[in-house]
Nucleic acid binder design. Structure first.
Lengths: 150, 150
DNA sequence: CCTAAGCTTAAAGTGAACTTTAAGGTCAAG
DNA sequence: CTTGACCTTAAAGTTCACTTTAAGCTTAGG
């Protein structure tokens, strides 16, 4: 598969694919007699992994370290346990992020509620204070919920 | 409160606080006779809001638009319904992100499982194929779960 | 044969979110 | 009355993750 087709099928730009290759995120593509890159079909799967990990908040550096591949400095066979441990740490990070998101969501919904069901006709400063108070109450509720959960 | 104390109490650097002020994320601080900034105590709460929103994936531009404050171009009283609508959209985005994270987590755990409980002694290329196969199976299960949920 | 699409490279540019630097003013303590 | 911590500004620098540019191949189609 040449770079244009891979770009179209993956939805990524060709420049991004070249960038990923030069960054070592996808293995160096084979070259045809004309110098054109020839990517194997698996690259598509790998790109999905990469973009998925990115959406999950991983940096490219982290992804390079975590993705399966035999080209790294520790890329030999006995590598698997370390990768598994790293992935477990990442799962922990994802869980922490999920918790933060849930917290953000609760806060946001509290603000929406405060905005939509709160008293009308206050001036802006008073409204701001009320919203911030609402957030503080949310914090307290969260703290209580956290305590209860432990 | 001067900038050093605010920095210490918020855990943010003084340069970051100046940057946030110049970016309009926190209101322009009053100035003492010496030109030093004098921040009101509420700024701390606002900074928590800002960093919280950042952790939730908002850009500073978005945060500036969403945070309560009477200094914006649309900062007058009737502004609340638009803010509420924007916040609801953000909640939707957060939920999408949560779903993506859950997906990532499942994938990661599938890889960990594949790595830890899979056959031993395969060479690296074979192992890679096995891991990628595992991810594909995860995709299929997710698709099935999604279908079932709808 | 020529053109246009598609590929190559190296290098420079972009935008977000800050940080660092440089040059200087303020102020309490010794 | 000087040292050192703390403050000021404007401007330049940094990192990440790419994109754009410039100059130049290759290859299929009219």
């Amino acid at each position: 598969m040449r770079i244009g087709e891979l770009a179209q099928r993956s939805g990524l730009s060709a420049s991004r694919l070249r960038f990923y290759e030069s960054a070592g995120l996808i293995g160096p593509a084979e070259r045809g007699a004309n110098g054109y890159r020839a990517f194997p079909a698996e690259t598509l799967t790998r790109l999905e992994l990469i973009t998925g990990a990115q959406r999950a908040g991983f940096t490219l550096d982290e992804i390079r370290g975590l993705l399966p591949g035999c080209d790294g400095p520790a890329g030999e066979v006995g590598h698997a346990p370390q990768i598994a441990a790293a992935l477990r740490r990442k799962v922990g990070e994802i869980e922490a992020l999920q918790h933060r998101l849930e917290t953000s969501k609760i806060r946001l919904l509290a603000i929406v509620d405060s905005l939509e069901n709160g008293p009308q006709g206050l001036d802006c400063a008073a409204n701001t204070r009320r919203v911030l108070d609402g957030i503080k109450r949310t914090d307290i509720k969260e703290a209580a919920a956290k305590e209860a959960a432990e």
